[in-house]
Nucleic acid binder design. Structure first.
Lengths: 205, 205
DNA sequence: CCCGAAATACGGTACTCACCGTACCTGAAA
DNA sequence: TTTCAGGTACGGTGAGTACCGTATTTCGGG
């Protein structure tokens, strides 16, 4: 809670207490190993044993820092790259670029598999839902920013439901990635952007 | 392939071969037990051992009919109810009712948890993706029907992209259910329907 | 038409395997 | 000497397999 970034669980040196201090490098090393395992083989290869072997530590060392594999996976998810935040001056262009960047990440990284797996665990572990909500929300920050700027510029009406608009943009993508397997093309992105803009009453330029 | 319904795997009596025929009741009994386990405790309580105990058969009897737990789960998913197909004469009313029915099922059955779990397994088992695509597609048949009828009545333009429209309607719902945990209200459904109708250029009535 | 052989399903049990998570012991830092 | 990190070994669960003895069917030969 006191460290620079506060992850799922207390960070490396909780309160500098009495006994032997934790190895200060282990936290990052474990997290990076977990992210790397995710990146190479998806969620299925992310096992605590594999992380421990990679870091050359024991499982206990991991479980002292993360209470469960899922917590570790959530933090590792945050290590995956985010699409760059565009700023082209128009919502339409920004949204196209941002969604395009998302698709690139979906193609180039195991982000989809990771998200799918985490969703699957969400069903089994409701106590985890809020953590996941937060993690997913964070991955939409860029999108939120683009929309807010558009409202600030007057491109979108002030009463725009940002949450709904984001869902209209991202929801169909996730549906195709997770459920139907339908292809995601540039044309689809264009159509989504148009539909969303029209839906919230943007001035058609 | 020759039976009335052809599930994931060959049905009860494949070709009436040499040996002892399979118990014709086991197939349904296993499937119903699996569906019931899903309905009571979600995906996590669906274990092959539990199904076997419920049906009073051996695991081998199950594995003789389904090659894996996942195949069984997919077929059990199809046992969950579908929302009733509305026919009120207008797309707007039909869509509202249909989506409302979906939400009811999401609230009253473990459908969400089941879908989440299956999505999670999709990441781990790409060979399964096409089967899942099919199963999810089937659960959108009603929606497709409503849209097609609207096109037939001229309420929607003939060039409407039905697939895209379905994604625009369902995608945001799934996003909230699976990722953000945001609430799903009647207002949201109304907004989705309006957005989708405007998006595909329906005559605003 | 009858009988044996081959083929296949059945229940049951025990097993392997993988993996999560924990108990316990050892040793280092304060 | 106390406190806590690290390592090892273990328990537990659940998927999927192997195998046994038995039951039930088809087929081929008498």
């Amino acid at each position: 809670m006191a460290a620079t970034n506060a992850p799922t669980v207390e960070n490396t040196t909780p309160r500098r207490g009495r006994g032997r201090p934790r190895n200060s490098e282990s936290y990052r090393a474990i997290l990076e190993a977990a992210a790397e395992l995710l990146a190479t083989g998806g969620f299925e290869t992310l096992t605590i044993d594999a992380v421990a072997a990679k870091v050359r530590c024991s499982k206990a060392t991991i479980y002292r820092r993360w209470t469960s594999k899922l917590r570790l996976a959530i933090d590792a998810l945050a290590e995956l790259p985010d699409p760059p935040l565009p700023d082209r001056g128009s919502v339409r262009a920004d949204l196209r670029e941002l969604l395009g960047g998302m698709i690139e990440i979906f193609n180039d990284t195991p982000a989809v598999a990771v998200m799918q797996s985490l969703i699957g665990e969400r069903a089994r572990n409701p106590e985890l839902a809020s953590l996941l909500d937060e993690a997913f929300q964070k991955r939409r920050d860029g999108l939120c920013e683009v929309l807010q700027r558009a409202i600030g510029r007057g491109e979108l009406p002030a009463h725009t439901d940002v949450e709904l608009t984001m869902d209209l943009l991202v929801g169909p993508l996730l549906t195709r990635l997770f459920c139907t397997g339908a292809p995601i093309t540039a044309d689809l992105i264009d159509a989504l952007v148009e539909s969303a803009l029209v839906g919230c009453g943007a001035a058609s330029s």
